[in-house]
Computed example of a mutant assay.
Amino acid sequence: MTLMIGIILAGGQATRMGGGDKGVLPLGDQTLLQHVIERLASQVDSIALNANGDPSRFSAYNLPVIADSMTGFAGPLAGVLAGMDYAASQGADTIVTAAADTPFFPSDLVECLQAAAQSMVHPLALAATPHPDRNKLRHPTFGLWPVALRDDLRTALHAGTRKVVQWTDGHHGRLAMFPSEDAFFNVNTPDDLVKAQAML
């Protein structure tokens, strides 16, 4: 049986929210992060949190906290790499990533990503939704990632690659299509948090 580890990406700088950890903001009677943990927990074998800085601020969540191995803010790909390295230490061959500020993502996220990546030697897939202007809108913080490519990703990051889709396209990553963009609504601003309360 394949071990599936979920990695919650919480390493963003939250500049549009005034800085700090967006995941600890309240949404209903829980935090954003609690909503994400609950939604992901039923889809994976275990969860770890990718965040930089003092890990003790997340102690209430009782999850392993893994920091980026790269210095400076290298974006979500650095969090993916940290997740891959952690998964390798746990004996897992794939990870699924989810963003800490996106509380309504699909309950069949992992199932659909796995289906999209079926038959790939190194399963690699990103979530996507239909978009009227761009045909498809990719959600690069929601993906299925093969641990076997972690050294390739490390090399790419050190060479300056920062865009998720630049790296995934280079490895012929596939798309898992979901019907509604609302499922990937993420909280970037105080107004977004008000909207999320209404959606809840």
Rank of each mutant, 00 (worst) to 15 (best):
D152V: 04
R138K: 06
F142R: 04
H131S: 15
H158T: 00
L153F: 03
A176F: 08
L153G: 05
P130S: 09
P140F: 03
R138E: 13
G173S: 08
L137Q: 14
R138L: 13
T155N: 11
K163Y: 08
D169A: 11
R138Q: 10
A159Q: 14
D169W: 04
T155A: 15
A156T: 04
P179Q: 09
P130Q: 10
T155I: 12
L153W: 01
P132I: 09
T141W: 10
G173Q: 05
A156R: 03
G173V: 02
F142C: 06
V147C: 05
P146S: 02
H139R: 12
T161P: 00
H171S: 03
A159I: 01
D151I: 00
G170S: 10
P140K: 02
G160T: 03
D151F: 10
L144R: 01
D133R: 14
F142Y: 09
V165K: 08
K136A: 15
D152C: 06
E181Y: 07
G143C: 08
W145D: 02
S180L: 12
K163D: 06
L153C: 08
G160N: 05
F178H: 10
H171N: 05
L137G: 04
G160W: 01
F178Q: 03
D151W: 11
V165A: 11
T141E: 10
F178M: 07
R162D: 02
G143S: 13
L144C: 03
D169Q: 12
M177K: 04
H172L: 13
G173R: 00
R154A: 14
T141Y: 08
N135V: 13
M177G: 02
L175N: 12
V165L: 11
T161L: 12
L157W: 03
N135A: 14
H139E: 04
D133Y: 12
T161A: 13
H158N: 10
E181C: 01
A176V: 07
D152T: 09
W167E: 02
R138T: 13
V165P: 00
L149E: 03
D169E: 14
L153H: 05
L175S: 14
H172S: 15
T168L: 09
K136T: 13
R154E: 12
D169P: 00
T168P: 04
L153V: 05
V165Q: 10
L137W: 15
G173L: 03
P132T: 09
R174P: 00
D169R: 10
T161G: 04
H131W: 13
T161R: 07
L149R: 03
A148C: 05
L144E: 04
T161H: 10
T155C: 12
Q166D: 15
L144P: 01
R138N: 10
A176S: 12
D169S: 13
F142S: 08
L144H: 02
Q166P: 00
L137K: 12
L149G: 02
G170Q: 09
W145L: 06
L157T: 01
V164F: 07
R174K: 15
R162A: 07
V147A: 06
H171P: 03
G160E: 07
T141D: 14
F178T: 02
V165T: 14
F142H: 14
G170K: 07
N135K: 11
V165D: 11
D151R: 06
V147T: 06
H171R: 11
K136H: 11
H131Q: 10
H139A: 07
L149M: 09
P132W: 14
T168H: 09
A159P: 00
L175F: 14
D151C: 03
G160F: 02
M177H: 06
G143R: 04
